[in-house]
Design a binder for these strands. Structure first.
Lengths: 199, 199
DNA sequence: GCAATATACGGAGGGCGCCTCCGTTTAGGC
DNA sequence: GCCTAAACGGAGGCGCCCTCCGTATATTGC
C-alpha cells in the first residue's frame, strides 16, 4: 500500500527508469506488446539487467505504461454514471475502452491473460477501472435496458474480444464500432420486450 | 491443382510424414498452436530438417491437421441450408464453428492471422468453409432475420473473437454459448422490428 | 572533501526456439 | 547389386528470455 519508499531513487536509477519507459513506450507502440525487451534496453542505452531490475516482468512494464489510462477510464466510467441514458453511457464507455485497448497491438491479449492471473501487475492495476465499468453496467441493468444475466466479467471479456478482432484487421477502421453495435444490440433489452419471441 | 505427384512418396518419407503428423496432433493438442516444432520432431524421432521438408511452415502443418475439420464444417453449412429456420441454422453452424476452433488453444489467433495473409496455407484451406458459411448467412439475410449490413467476413471474425475469448477462460465451460447468444441477439432482426426504437 | 556503503549497473552466459544448409544415407528402378 | 534421385538429420547462426554476480557510483556521515 505504501508505494513511496523511504529513500528517493538514486539519481542514475531514476534517469534510467525514465529512459526505459520512454523507449518502451516507443517500441511497444511500434511493435506491440511482444516487443523485444533487449531491444528496449539497447535503445535506452542501458543493460538488460537494469531493465529487469526496474521492471521484473513484461507485465510490470506494461502496467506502468498503462496505469494512467486505466485510471482515466475508471474516472470516465464514474463520470458517466450521471449521464441521462444508462445504456448510452455504457456504450460510450465500452467505446472508450476498446479504443484504449488499441493503443498497443497485442494489448487485448495481454489484458485477458492478466485476467486469469491474479498475481499479475496488470490484473491489479486495472481493477479499479473494471469496478467502475461494473457500476455502469449495473446501472443499466437496474434501469432495465441491459439483460440481467450479463456479468461484469463477461462484459469485460467481450470488450476485449472486440478490441482483439479490431486489432487483427487494422486496415478496417470501422470494425470496432460495428462490432460494438452488435454487442450492444445483443445485450440490451429492447424497448418493446426485445423481440425474444422466437426462442 | 494437381496435388498428386507423379511418383508416390518414398516409404521412409511417408512413414516420417505420418509420425510427424501424429506427434504434432498430440503436442499441439497439449500445448496449443504455438507448440515447439523442434519438440514435435524430437517426439517423432525425426530430424528437424525432416519436419521442415514436409511442412515448410507452422501453418502448413496446422493446415494438414485441420483440413478435414474445415471440410466437415463446410459440409455442415451446406447441409444446414435445408434446415427450416435460417437463423437457427446459422446459429447452429456458428456453434459448430466456435466449438471446432477450441480444439487447439491459440487456433482462433492463427485463423485470424491467416485471414490477413492470402498466401497462407490456412487461408486457402478454410476458404470453402467460409464460403459455405456465407451461404448460410445470406439465406438468413434474405429471410429477413439477420441484419443485412453484416458481412460474411465480419461474421467470421466475430466467431473467431468468441472462440478466442472462450479459449482464454477455459474453466468457464458455458462462456462460448453465452457469447454466441449475445452475438445472435445482436445481429438478428427481431420478429417485431427488433426494438430498434431508441437509436 | 573523503571514506564507507548501500544502490545500482551491465552484460556474459545458459536455455530455448526458429529455420537453413549441406554432407550423408537410403529406397527403389533398372 | 548398382546408381541416383530422394530423403535424412542436425550443426550452427540468430534472436529472445532471464539470472547472476563482479564492478561502478551516488549518497551520507564525518
Amino acid at each position: 500500500m505504501d508505494d513511496t519508499p523511504r529513500r528517493p531513487m538514486r539519481a542514475d536509477a531514476r534517469r534510467n527508469y525514465e529512459r526505459l519507459l520512454a523507449e518502451a513506450e516507443a517500441l511497444i507502440a511500434e511493435r506491440g506488446t511482444g516487443a523485444s525487451l533487449e531491444e528496449i534496453a539497447k535503445r535506452a542505452d542501458v543493460g538488460i539487467g537494469t531493465l529487469y531490475r526496474h521492471f521484473p516482468t513484461r507485465e510490470a512494464l506494461l502496467e506502468t505504461l498503462l496505469r494512467e489510462r486505466f485510471d482515466a477510464l475508471g474516472a470516465r466510467a464514474t463520470g458517466l454514471l450521471d449521464a441521462p441514458d444508462p445504456l448510452d453511457a455504457l456504450l460510450e464507455w465500452l467505446r472508450a475502452f476498446t479504443r484504449g485497448t488499441r493503443v498497443y497491438q497485442g494489448l487485448a491479449e495481454s489484458m485477458l491473460a492478466a485476467l486469469r492471473d491474479e498475481e499479475s501487475e496488470l490484473y491489479a492495476s486495472c481493477h479499479g477501472m473494471r469496478d467502475a465499468g461494473r457500476a455502469l453496467l449495473v446501472r443499466a441493468q437496474r434501469a432495465g435496458t441491459v439483460r440481467a444475466d450479463l456479468t461484469a466479467l463477461d462484459m469485460f471479456v467481450l470488450a476485449n474480444a472486440i478490441a482483439w478482432a479490431a486489432e487483427a484487421l487494422p486496415e478496417d477502421a470501422g470494425i470496432g464500432e460495428r462490432f460494438l453495435t452488435f454487442l450492444v444490440e445483443g445485450i440490451r433489452l429492447g424497448d418493446a420486450g426485445a423481440g425474444q419471441g422466437a426462442r
